[in-house]
């Protein structure tokens, strides 16, 4: 369980090569899915185009439930990319994990807190950016003192809490799923009895992890749009 990470230090940067590789794999899979399914676009959609359009409408509805479409339309691309990237990332670690030497190479990239916190921080920075861009600096600063000025410290805490919960919720769910899968895999490889005993909980947990993987992708996208709406909408 306690595998090493393949680290590479370049100057002052430290890369976890497995994380970078898994990010690339997830990105390539997402890109291929999206690219292939949008090759022969028709007005009357068939097959994969239907699926992609369903995802687009799904994200569109998430955005619409938080803000009006005129404001939220610009986050559509971000939302679709987020939900697909995170869903694929969450599922990557489910079928197997690869340990080479003592180093864990194949896992979900979202089972790494650095990745999820980076995504969460990116989202929060984006919300602040769009808050300033669309509402003006005055209005943006003003939101920190509403409804009462003594709420200011709480508002500051809220921003950090949002970032932390957004990133760590995803990380925790996926990492826990992988830990349990790893434990079950260890049980299965321990012997014949262990193998038989591990099959059923393994299948159950994998099914549940698939569910969690999609749910977490949905929650991440949903919260992204909620935080975004907090900053850019008038009525929130």
């Amino acid at each position: 369980m306690n595998h090493e990470a393949p680290l590479l230090e370049v100057g002052f940067l430290t890369f976890n090569l497995s994380t970078v590789m898994m990010l690339l794999v997830a990105a390539i899979i997402v890109f291929l899915i999206a690219f292939i399914s949008t090759r022969s676009l028709k007005l009357k959609p068939t097959g994969m185009q239907n699926f992609m359009e369903w995802i687009m409408d799904f994200v569109k509805n998430i955005i619409k439930s938080n803000m009006d479409w005129k404001t939220g339309g610009r986050f559509h691309v971000l939302g679709i990319t987020l939900i697909m990237f995170i869903a694929v990332s969450n599922l990557l670690g489910l079928p197997f994990s690869i340990v080479y030497g003592h180093e864990l190479w194949w896992k979900s990239p979202t089972a790494d807190p650095t990745v999820t916190m980076t995504l969460a921080a990116m989202i929060l920075v984006l919300t602040h950016f769009y808050g300033v861009k669309m509402k003006g600096t005055g209005h943006y600063v003003g939101t920190f003192f509403k409804p009462m000025s003594f709420m200011f410290p709480l508002k500051i805490v809220e921003e950090f809490a949002n970032t932390l919960t957004l990133g760590l919720r995803l990380y925790g769910n996926i990492y826990a799923g992988e830990i349990l899968l790893g434990l079950l895999a260890g049980l299965a490889s321990s012997g014949a009895v262990g193998f038989i005993g591990a099959i059923v909980p393994m299948m159950a947990w994998q099914g549940f992890s698939i569910f969690i993987g999609f749910i977490q992708a949905f929650i991440f996208t949903m919260l992204t749009m909620v935080y975004m709406a907090h900053k850019v909408s008038d009525d929130h």
């Binding site: 940067l13 430290t14 890369f15 976890n16 970078v20 990010l23 790494d112 650095t114 990745v115 980076t118």
Partner: peptide, 13 residues
């Protein structure tokens, strides 16, 4: 802290 991962995540995403 894997600072390189942060950059990699951002760039890749």
């Amino acid at each position: 802290l894997n600072s390189g991962d942060i950059i990699a995540t951002l760039v890749i995403f």
